[in-house]
Write a protein that binds this DNA or RNA. Sequence first.
DNA 1: TCGTGCTCTGTGAGCGTTCACAGTAGAGAA
DNA 2: TTCTCTACTGTGAACGCTCACAGAGCACGA
Lengths: 343, 343
Amino acid sequence: MSRTGSNGRRKPPTIHDVAREAGVSRGTVSRVLNGGHYVSPAAEEAVNAAIRKTGYVVNRHARSLITGRSDSVAFLLTEPQERFFEDPNFNVLLRGCTQALADHDIPLLLMIAGTKDERRRITRYITAGHVDGVLLVSSHSGDPVAEQLRAARVPLVACGKPLGQSSRVSYVAADDRDGAREMVRHLVRSGRRRIATVTGPLDTPGGTERLAGYRDVLAEAGIEADERLVATGDYSRASGESCAAELLRRAPDMDAVFVASDLMAQGVLSALRDAGRRVPDDVAVGGFDDSPAALDTRPALTTIRQPWDRISSEMVRVLLAQIGGEDTSTVILPTELVRRGSA
Amino acid sequence: MSRTGSNGRRKPPTIHDVAREAGVSRGTVSRVLNGGHYVSPAAEEAVNAAIRKTGYVVNRHARSLITGRSDSVAFLLTEPQERFFEDPNFNVLLRGCTQALADHDIPLLLMIAGTKDERRRITRYITAGHVDGVLLVSSHSGDPVAEQLRAARVPLVACGKPLGQSSRVSYVAADDRDGAREMVRHLVRSGRRRIATVTGPLDTPGGTERLAGYRDVLAEAGIEADERLVATGDYSRASGESCAAELLRRAPDMDAVFVASDLMAQGVLSALRDAGRRVPDDVAVGGFDDSPAALDTRPALTTIRQPWDRISSEMVRVLLAQIGGEDTSTVILPTELVRRGSA
DNA sequence: TCGTGCTCTGTGAGCGTTCACAGTAGAGAA
DNA sequence: TTCTCTACTGTGAACGCTCACAGAGCACGA
């Protein structure tokens, strides 16, 4: 067991203690700790025994001081904490990143910086070298954190295209525009002509890109654009409900809605039900995300799958490459249409 | 601006660079950085100007190496990640802790260690001195993490009583047993006699203590205990639904249910509705937690408020005291009955 | 004149690692 | 024999900071 005395005030064992215990030098202990190359089997065994006996754990501050690395990565969310709990995409993304990093034995530290004060504190913490890199999740533009971290040369990969950034920040994203096209084409193919849309906030890439894809298809199908068919939501369920109500008022003859997120689509479905419209008979509804909620609706939601597993693994791959000193670029991943009952 | 060159490969400025720039010694810069005592106004100003000019940020590894502190705290969740997103209590608790730590300018690092492998990695990370202390959130017993961290002398405060731990771990908790008593007394006072309960998992303090409180009141009211009126859930909404169905089958004459969490109470309400029972006329329902969901039900849920704001601030207070070297004990906080429509 | 106490400043040592380098021993080839 | 190569080991010097201490300068009173 450990050498801890009766009062527990003893200082933790250092590499010196292990070296003395094993009858070797610091250097040999360090080599064992870092892969065991150029170490004789006898020495390795003695060191391992000494580590067990002393209860030695490497002091990462000392190691980081000289290596300049911390072997940990931050998952930084610059959104109000509520959004994190509300939006199932975060859950999936976080799990994927944790898993991908686990393959490299790197712990992930989750930091939520919703307020300005917290952003300042966390930025300082990261800039001080506490993590090797940052997986940045923030949908809104005008976020100064990305710029600050980039200025401090912190390796950084964003999830989704950071809008309105002057400099180039690496990012990984699904092909929002093409995904939207795929869904709207599906609606057109099934004979719909009065196709409305509920967009995300227009200061997010998901908001603008998916709207652009919607317009692309209307143009290519020769359907005239009608601004009465466009409503802007904020990704919340409640906004889906109110947007749908507004669309029904402005364009009662609509026969389909492309909704920029599944959560909003839930709201749209209940607004349509309240208005007595049948889905998909009267109005077809297409979502976006393929979140777990898409299976719970009645009818189940036809939606566009975001490849979250690939997004998270690519984010980690790109970040590790950047930490390794490589220049990295952005990655755009294809989406997939998932046909269920609502369209 | 910063001294960064064209290629950005420059090493970040150190305290030496700042000292040279300001025309003072390292010691003076360090004093400015740590509160500015015993520093002349002229020197302080020169140092601050030099910090701005060089873009200096303190290297926390170097600082931590000598001070032995990291000025950060972990919020460690040893639950599967899903539970974290599902249970609104975590949200409230996390926000409270973040806020309380913000008052001390201490960043909080959220770590989720759901699998055994992750627990190993995170424990090693923490033991290596990366954080000054741990706020532990794990409801289930048999969790070895608390023991390991205690053995490594890491300051530690748990949320809720850690069951089945041989050693003493400081914790902060609501008075579960008394809260349960309060609710069941309320049911008794309103004339109910066939009072059922849906408990939490019996390897959690919320599970056993709230059940004990329920039994206390039945005994003091002279109501005979009936095991058919007790069902064990797992805090999820779905388990509330199935437990209620089972209770209805086993004891169709029940006139009240005390449910050990609001989330489960939601499930109970919908099961009762499906069975055609009116709430509270036929069956009164009492919850526990006072989570935001308690307001969304129809009728709104009568429940026991857990003082989450006080729990989180006390956890932080106790942890900081422990980090400061004080011996700390446990804190039990009173609950409060919140009367709404369901009972 | 000297001592005493205050504020302020600089310097050397050391925190616990890793890294570069020098050095040893033994095997095999010339 | 001697030289070269490989496998292994130990040592001093960092990494960037804080801390303890010594000392300077000044004011004040004995």
